[in-house]
């Protein structure tokens, strides 16, 4: 099996001199196709920074990162955009929906950028919105949606391209326990279909659904274990 994610001795430093912060301090991590990984750790431990690098949204200070065997540092910004669109579905901590644009248009957007025709992408977007239970809100703009509904629109947008890799940064932060349960069921399904899921969370019951749990502290991985209950 090829590693979807291959992080080698990565350092991410913010600032210089005395003010320098090592958000990631020599992190190495390999995630194979079809894994379901939870990344845990206290606030400020570098989880979001790691996700941004895995998603090719940010560059590294030192070290190497291979996405699907490709050295990300060798790609230009335009190629990276296209790679992100085709391979990765992002669910951000702060939703990141396009403002003043309906939920439907938001979910259609990644399909449009892939050049998929209007009719097909409308159909797929409606299906994805249905999957997250937002069928009755498709024409609402982000400001007309609750936090939980915005999060679900963001999930629909991440899933609509059927990405091989799903990266989610605290996706359940804005959700009640019922919606959390629904979303985790969805992740299970996606993972069962053979796709890779990486979830950042600080909730134990969210992490409990993953097959592998990584713990971070001060920019380092301090624990990397398989979830015995799930593997069995």
């Amino acid at each position: 099996m090829t590693a979807v994610i291959d992080v080698r001795n990565v350092i991410k430093r913010y600032g210089v001199g005395d003010a320098a912060i090592f958000a990631l301090n020599d992190v190495s991590l390999s995630i194979e196709q079809g894994e379901y990984v939870a990344i845990m750790g206290p606030s400020g431990s570098g989880k979001s920074t790691l996700m941004n690098i895995m998603g090719a949204l940010d560059n590294v200070t030192a070290g190497e990162y291979f996405l699907d065997g490709i050295d990300v540092s060798s790609l230009g910004e335009n190629e990276l955009s296209i790679v992100r669109g085709r391979k990765i579905g992002f669910i951000f901590q702060s939703f990141n929906l396009v403002p003043r644009t309906s939920a439907l248009a938001n979910v259609e957007l990644p399909l449009a950028y892939q050049g998929i025709k209007l009719k097909e992408r409308r159909m797929r977007a409606l299906k994805a919105l249905d999957l997250v239970g937002l069928s009755d809100r498709v024409n609402h703009e982000p400001t007309e949606l609750s936090g939980g509904q915005q999060q679900r629109a963001a999930v629909a947008r991440a899933l609509v391209t059927r990405p091989a890799l799903l990266l989610a940064d605290e996706p359940t932060g804005a959700l009640d326990s019922k919606s959390t349960e629904d979303l985790l069921d969805l992740f299970d399904q996606i993972n069962e279909a053979g796709r890779t899921v990486v979830v950042i969370t600080h909730e134990n019951d969210v992490a409990a659904r993953a097959k592998r749990i990584i713990r971070m502290r001060d920019g380092k991985i301090i624990e990397d274990v398989l979830n015995a209950k799930k593997i069995a």
Partner: peptide, 15 residues
């Protein structure tokens, strides 16, 4: 910020 979002979900520079 909107441009950042669009790029994260796969918008090519030309678009």
């Amino acid at each position: 910020r909107e441009i950042g979002i669009r790029k994260a979900i796969g918008a090519p520079r030309s678009a």
